[in-house]
């Protein structure tokens, strides 16, 4: 099997995303963890592009890395974390807390990989799905799901507004 240029890009971006995600969940400082997760999302955008989903790749950069994670970063900066908080955080990160999660994660990984790699379904052709096809399907046949998504966002907005008001105004 010969590797095309896209395959090499796919493997490189996959390794980058896995590495930065693993770094992200092991940091004591939340800011470093979040910045590593943003890097992982950029690697995932490259993976999406090589899989023939350019619209999803653009959304991953603009919405996920650009808007959602920047909101996350701003809130973490508003939490007034100091040196003692980070020291307490690294005090929790002993090697013993990783044992049981890694064992249970390895069990789940074994099951998932057995199911995925053991399936003998046809490898199939690859298709590039254009943004035009996505938009056409989204705003004609899937319009009800768009309405449901907008109601979900409205519920999130109202909930965040209510919980964010000062305590006196809430009573």
């Amino acid at each position: 099997m010969s590797l095309s240029g896209y395959d090499i890009v796919f493997y490189a971006a996959s390794a980058f995303a896995l590495l930065t995600t693993a770094i992200a969940i092991t940091r004591a400082n939340p800011l470093y963890g979040l910045l590593n997760f943003v890097l992982s999302l950029l690697g995932m955008a490259v993976v999406f592009y090589t899989l023939g989903a350019p619209f999803a790749a653009a959304l991953e950069v603009i919405v996920y890395a650009g808007a959602i994670m920047v909101l996350f970063l701003f809130v973490v900066m508003m939490l007034r974390l100091d040196r003692t908080a980070i020291a307490r955080e690294s005090g929790w990160l002993t090697s013993s807390i990783w044992i049981i999660p890694i064992l249970s994660g390895a069990a789940l990984a074994g099951e998932l990989l057995y199911g995925l790699l053991g399936s003998t379904g046809p490898a199939g052709a690859h298709h590039i799905v254009s943004p035009q096809a996505v938009g056409l399907k989204l705003f004609t046949t899937d319009l009800a799901a768009v309405e449901l998504a907008s109601m979900l966002l409205l519920a999130g907005l109202i909930g965040a507004y209510h919980l964010g008001r000062p305590a006196r105004a809430r009573d």
Binding site: S4, A17, T50, W92, W98, P101, S104, L112, L116
Partner: peptide, 29 residues
């Protein structure tokens, strides 16, 4: 366009999910 089968990206998704699960179980913050 990759010439790989769908197994490679599906395996990547499983591994990322498991890294997230390990983080969820292990971290207290």
């Amino acid at each position: 366009m990759v010439s790989l089968s769908w197994h490679a990206p599906a395996t990547l998704a499983a591994m990322l999910f498991i890294i997230g699960l390990i983080g969820l179980l292990a971290r207290r913050s």
